[in-house]
Nucleic acid binder design. Structure first.
Lengths: 338, 338
DNA sequence: ATATGCTATGTAAGCGCTTACATCAGATAA
DNA sequence: TTATCTGATGTAAGCGCTTACATAGCATAT
C-alpha cells in the first residue's frame, strides 16, 4: 500500500494513548483474559479516538487464524450461482468471517498452486468438482477444515458435505411423468460427467424407469452439459435422427431451455407434441413459454448450511458427515399437466 | 488453524533444503533482485520437493501488500450481480489478485468498522452506494486505492469511476418511444433514491420529454425501486387510480417484470393496450411474454474495466477519472414494435 | 597494482499482532 | 502472621515473511 506512514496507527499507539500495554489492548479487543471494566473502557476510548483498526495480516500471522473462509467454485455463472453465493455471503458475515472467493475456471484438473488454502483461509467450501481430488486429499490429511457443497466426500476421507436430494428429485420427476402423465418414452439430457449433481440425477432417472419396467434406452440419452447451447445442439440432432419420445427430462433448467428452443425451431409444440421438464427451478423457469415443470433445489439453504458446518469444523466442533436437503416437484405447463 | 505443526513448512525450510538464505528464496519467489539461474533452480526444486506455499499473512505483514482487492456491494442479488461478479472475478484472477467480497447488506448507512479496508486489501471496488460517503472520504484521504463502479465520485474528491451511459440510454429509449412508436404519455417507474443509476435514468427520461415538448407529469412517475414486487404494487395502484398512459418505462428490467405482471393481472394487453420497456437487458428479458424491449448495459465489461483501473491505481499508474460505457437499445415486442 | 563498479548472496531488523510467562497486588486460607 | 492463590497487567518472544544494508567475488577502468 502506498499509504502515508504517519497515518498508520497500530496497537502500540492505542496502548500508549490508553496508558496500558499492548497485551491488554489485545485482550480487550479479543475478549481474552481478564481485564478491569475501567481499563477496558479506556482502551475502547483510545480505539475510538484514534480510529484504530487491527491489521488482519499481523493478526493472522500471530494467531495462525485468518478469520476468513474460502469459497471455491468452478465458474461463476448460471442462475445457479446467485442464490448460492448469497447464502454463503450472508452466513459468513453473520458468523463474523470474511469471504474469499476463487473460481478455478471450470478446470478441475487445474494445477497447483491453488489460490485458496491453508495459509490464507481458516477453512474452505468446495463446490462440486472445483478442486482436484488430490488437493482435497492433501488438505484433509493435514486436518484443514473443509466442507463440500453439491458433492460428496471421496471415499475413505470423511469430509462433511451438504447437497440436495438429486436422485430423489429426479426419480420423483420421472415417477410423475410416468404415473400422472402416462409417458413411457422419456428422453434424458444428462449433465457434465464430472459433476456429481449430474450423476445422481441420471441415476434417479434410471431408477424410476426400472421401477416402472421401462427398459433403459441409450438412444434416449444425450449430453445437455448443464448448458443451453449444448442441449440445443443435442436435441436438434435427436430430431434430425427421428427422436421418438413423449417427453424430455433435462438434467437442469438451462439445458431445458436449450431443448425447448430446439423443439420450437423444428415446429414441435410443447407440451402437445413433446413435454419438457428440467431441474433446479431457476427464476427463468416460471417465465418460459410454456412455464417449465422442474424440480426445485434449495440452493441458498444448502449454501447457508455449508457455511455453518464449516464454522463448526473450524471451531473443532462435530458436524454430521452428510446433509441432504429435500427437493420439490414444481409442476407447470411444460409437462402437459393442464 | 488446527494444523499439525510439523507439517508447516516455511521459507526457512526451503532455504535450508536449497542451501541458500531466506532472502534468496524470497528473491526467487518474487523475482526481485538478481539470482543466478542455477541458484534459482535449486530453490525451485526445494519448493517443489517440500510443497512449499508462502504464507499470505506474513507476506502481507512484511511487504505491506495484501495482493487482494476488495469488492463492496450493497446486496448480492438481482440478475445484475452475476455478470458483474464474473467480470470482477476473472479480471482479478488474471491480474494475479485475490478477491475479497463483502456485501454491506443494502444499508449504505451501516456503521463502522467496515469489513474491507486499508488493512486487508490493497484497494477497493465500491459498487453504487455500498459505502457511506464519510468512509469513502476517509479512505480517499489516506490515499487508499479506490475505484467506483456504477456511481460517480463525490465532488471534490477525484476517485476514478466506471459506469454506463444511463442517461443516454434512457434518453434514447424515450426518444424511440416518442419518435418511432408515437407515444406521448409515457409513465416512469423510478429506481431507488440512493442509487446513481436510478438518478441518471430518470434524468434521461425527463430530458427526452423536454426535447419532445412533452410536459413532465408527476402523476406518471412512481416508485419501482429496481424491485419486481414494488413495481407491481405501484402499477396496480396506478391502474386503480385510472392510469392514462401509452407506455411504461421501468428503470430496470426487474421492475418491468413487476409492471407486466400487474398489467396482465388487470387484463391489459402488452403492448396493444400499453407498452412496457425496461433497462439492463437481464437474461430473463428475452424470455418474457412479450419479450421485453430494454436498454442493454455492459455490466461485465464495466466490472472488468473497474478491476483493471484499480490494479493500475494500486501500482501507482494514472487512470482516467471517469469511464462511461455505451448502452444499447434492444428492441423486442413489448414496446409494440411489431 | 589499486580503485571502482557490478553481480550474487547473506544478515538481520522489522511488519503489527498474540500469547506464554513473569510480576505484583490484594484476598483467602492456614 | 505467613503461605497460597487469584485476578489484573506487563514483558518479550515469536509468527513467516520482505528488504535495507553489508559483504564478497570478480571484471573493468586507472
Amino acid at each position: 500500500m502506498l499509504l502515508d506512514d504517519s497515518s498508520r496507527i497500530t496497537i502500540v499507539e492505542v496502548a500508549q494513548y490508553a496508558g496500558v500495554s499492548t497485551a491488554t489492548v489485545s485482550r480487550v479487543i479479543n475478549k481474552t483474559g481478564p481485564v478491569l471494566p475501567e481499563t477496558a473502557a479506556k482502551v475502547y476510548a483510545a480505539i475510538e479516538a484514534l480510529n484504530y483498526k487491527p491489521n488482519a495480516a499481523a493478526r493472522g500471522l500471530a494467531s495462525r487464524r485468518t478469520n476468513t473462509i474460502g469459497l471455491l467454485v468452478d465458474e461463476i455463472s448460471g442462475e445457479f450461482f446467485q442464490p448460492m453465493l448469497r447464502g454463503i455471503e450472508v452466513t459468513a458475515r453473520a458468523s463474523g468471517m470474511d469471504l474469499l472467493i476463487s473460481s478455478t475456471g471450470g478446470m478441475s484438473q487445474s494445477s497447483p498452486p491453488y489460490p485458496l488454502g491453508e495459509n490464507n483461509t481458516d477453512g474452505l467450501i468446495v463446490f462440486a468438482d472445483s478442486l482436484p481430488q488430490e488437493e482435497l486429499v492433501r488438505l484433509h490429511k493435514i486436518g484443514f477444515p473443509l466442507v463440500l457443497l453439491h458433492r460428496s466426500s471421496p471415499s475413505g476421507l470423511n469430509i462433511p458435505c451438504v447437497t440436495v436430494e438429486n436422485k430423489e428429485g429426479a426419480r420423483r420427476m420421472v415417477d410423475y411423468l410416468v404415473e400422472e402423465r402416462g409417458y413411457r418414452k422419456i428422453a434424458f439430457l444428462e449433465g457434465p460427467d464430472s459433476h456429481e449433481d449430474a450423476y445422481w440425477r441420471k441415476l434417479g432417472y434410471e431408477e424410476s424407469l426400472a421401477v416402472h419396467d421401462i427398459p433403459f434406452n441409450p438412444k434416449l440419452v444425450s449430453l445437455g452439459e448443464f448448458d443451453e447451447t449444448q442441449a440445443r445442439v443435442s436435441v436438434s440432432q435427436w430430431i434430425k435422427n427421428g427422436l421418438n419420445a413423449e417427453a424430455i427430462f433435462a438434467a437442469d433448467d438451462d439445458s431445458a431451455i436449450g431443448a425447448m428452443a430446439a423443439l420450437k425451431e423444428s415446429g414441435l409444440r410443447i407440451p402437445e407434441d413433446i413435454a419438457v421438464v428440467g431441474f433446479d427451478d431457476i427464476r427463468l423457469a416460471a417465465y418460459l413459454d410454456p412455464p417449465l415443470t422442474t424440480v426445485r433445489a434449495p440452493i441458498e439453504q444448502a449454501a447457508r448450511i455449508a457455511v455453518e458446518q464449516l464454522v463448526k469444523v473450524i471451531r473443532g466442533e462435530e458436524v454430521e458427515a452428510m446433509t441432504l436437503l429435500p427437493t420439490e416437484l414444481v409442476i407447470r405447463r411444460s409437462c402437459g399437466c393442464c
